[in-house]
Design a protein around this nucleic acid. Structure first.
Length: 570
DNA sequence: GCCGTTTTCGGCCCGACTGTTTTCAGTCG
């Protein structure tokens, strides 16, 4: 029954929990790692892995073998992996939560649980308060202090929340600028998941070379906005800002800046795969250089390009470094030429004061679009604010403005709502008068969203589906959209799919964007701007497209309007 | 548990920091 298949996120969650439980049991580290890797692979896969497992094809995914495939089938059949059910009976549920406390790893958790019989967070707290933890070898006052501090703060127990890239990146780049001003600083760059432009980030990573690393590290920990210094050494420090951002700084000598930047940009999975591959070739890779195991000879790189070349790869753009096949592609010289922000010729999803939630007037928005150098610009105010005479009034204003802003081509668009029953809330004859139609779901997210989207795509006037899954990062889960059926219908009908650039949407996700792109669906990158500065959000949308391996050819609005029209329905 | 231009068995990334220690295990990224 296709409708009851577990989602990839659910499968991954079970694999991760099993890994945690095995680790607490003291299982061999590599088996634990195998489950974690499999979980990550499931998360990064576009289509339903449960279906692949049923078809016996899940084991073709890297990191998933026959054993884990069987366990995924168990989830389909009984709802849970057997080995997981079994261990749940012996390990108290809250003991797993101990792992979320900073400084507590599996070894320590196991010791506390087994030797002191502590099995809930409340018991853990009182054991710390009563100074009973320090009776265990290897544990002292500091651990107790740490537990008392973290257990009280509920949020901390699950780690700091992930922040939207759209909020974190400006803060990160500002700190980078401040560090560049220091006399000891030579080169400073953002790194980590923010440099890879992941949609949300946790730690904000900065790397640097410096004439005096200790001085720069020290300066970093003493900046005025630092609320807490979590770790500090001569070449590495971690601090937390008052806003709650965690910044990591790491400093190395200038001649291995390329090695460091590559190392600290990650992802972890990319680096592990790269190092395993290097090791098979007799090379050991670290942030300081590439060492030939035999001779002990060390190769350092001032740039990432040199480093990847030394290891036998084409340069891999940061957005692709997720161990999603980029290493193999780079080895063969088959990486895609990724789309860039400057290649967008127009914005095809924008709002003005004609939408009640639009913050700027039509004139202001259009002039800003002109300043960006766009060739075309679609005004797609919400359909429900354009009832009766308002629609005509808005159209007239666009017409007047169009003459003034030529050669910028203004498109009379609309964002039409897909209603709960799958029909659109603007009649076809009015849609037909519009140059560009975005159809989106804004309500009744549980009501058969796939069927409704498919119905919308069958409408000959609908050009693109807006923010397909309706997710709001860290606020609203995506709708249960069957992406493969949507992709199939998009190809059949010639409907585009949007990458919505709003920092809390970024919808399509990177995984879905890649899936759609590979299938041949054309993607539109749009700002969905409701105010002037939101026009810049396309930078995030383009980053998302790059993370989806998309080339300019796959992005419809890298084309001229004349070229784009030829791709549209009929 | 997974995987293979040295292997279907025997390996499995690498280094920094912390706390508790007199040389290191555990944790973290």
């Amino acid at each position: 029954m296709a409708t009851t298949l577990p989602r990839n996120a659910d499968v991954a969650e079970q694999l991760e929990l099993l890994a945690d439980l095995l680790e607490i049991e003291g299982e061999a580290a590599f088996r634990v790692l195998a489950y974690r890797r499999a979980a990550q692979r499931v998360r990064d896969t576009g289509g339903p892995v449960a279906q692949l497992a049923l078809d016996g094809k899940a084991k073709e995914l890297p990191g998933i073998g026959a054993t884990i495939q069987d366990k995924i089938v168990q989830i389909v059949n009984t709802g849970e992996i057997e080995a997981l059910s079994k261990r749940r009976k012996t390990i108290p549920p809250e003991v797993v939560d101990f792992l979320r406390i900073p400084g507590l790893g599996p070894k320590t958790v196991r010791k506390i649980w087994q030797e002191l019989g502590v099995s809930t967070l409340a018991e853990l707290k009182s054991a710390a308060r009563d100074q009973r933890l320090r009776t265990l070898p290897g544990l002292g006052a500091k651990v107790e202090e740490n537990i008392l501090k973290s257990v009280g703060r509920k949020k901390k127990a699950t780690g700091p929340p992930r922040t939207l890239l759209g909020q974190a990146l400006p803060a990160l780049l500002a700190v980078v600028d401040v560090l560049r001003e220091h006399r000891a600083a030579e080169r400073v760059s953002e790194a980590g998941s923010a440099r890879r432009r992941r949609e949300t980030v946790r730690d904000l990573d900065i790397i640097a070379t410096a004439s005096d690393p200790a001085a720069l590290t020290d300066y970093f920990t003493k900046l005025s906005w630092v609320a807490e210094v979590a770790a500090k050494g001569p070449t590495k420090a971690t601090v937390e800002s008052h806003e709650g951002f965690r910044f990591d700084l790491r400093v190395v000598p200038p001649d291995c800046y390329g090695n460091l930047l590559q190392h600290f940009t990650g992802s972890k999975d990319h680096n592990i795969a790269l190092r395993e591959d290097a090791q098979r070739r007799g090379l050991s890779v670290s942030e300081y250089g590439v060492t030939e195991t035999e001779s002990g000879k060390v190769f350092t790189a001032e740039t990432e390009e040199e480093l990847y070349e030394r290891l036998g790869y084409a340069f891999i753009p940061p957005e692709l470094r997720e161990n999603g096949g980029e290493l193999e592609a780079a080895r063969r010289g088959e990486l895609p030429e990724l789309v860039e922000t400057g290649q967008l010729r127009g914005d095809l999803h924008t709002h003005s004061h004609w939408s009640a939630d639009g913050k700027n007037t039509l004139v202001e928005m259009v002039e800003a679009a002109g300043d960006r150098g766009y060739a075309y610009y679609a005004i797609t105010d919400h359909s429900h604010y354009l009832r009766e005479d308002r629609l005509e009034a808005q159209a007239k204003e666009i017409d007047r403005l169009a003459k003034r802003v030529a050669p910028l081509k203004l498109l009379k668009g609309v964002e039409v709502n897909i209603k709960a029953d799958g029909t659109l809330d603007m009649p076809d004859e009015l849609l037909a008068e519009r140059d560009w139609v975005v159809a989106s779901i804004h309500t009744a997210f549980q009501r058969e969203p796939t069927e409704r989207v498919i119905a919308a795509m069958e409408n000959p006037h609908v050009d693109v589906i807006g923010h397909l899954t309706g997710r709001k990062l860290s606020r609203r889960e995506p709708m249960e959209i069957d992406i493969e059926r949507v992709v199939e219908k998009a190809l059949e009908t010639g409907t585009f799919l949007e990458i919505n650039s709003q920092p809390d949407r970024l919808d399509l996700s990177d995984v879905n964007a890649r899936l759609a792109g590979e299938a041949g669906v054309k993607i539109v990158v749009s700002s969905d701007a409701h105010q002037l500065k939101a026009l810049d959000y396309v930078d995030f949308g383009i980053a998302q497209a790059r993370r989806g391996w998309l080339t300019p050819d796959q992005i419809a609005n890298t084309r001229t309007w004349a070229q784009l029209r030829k791709l549209m329905k009929k």
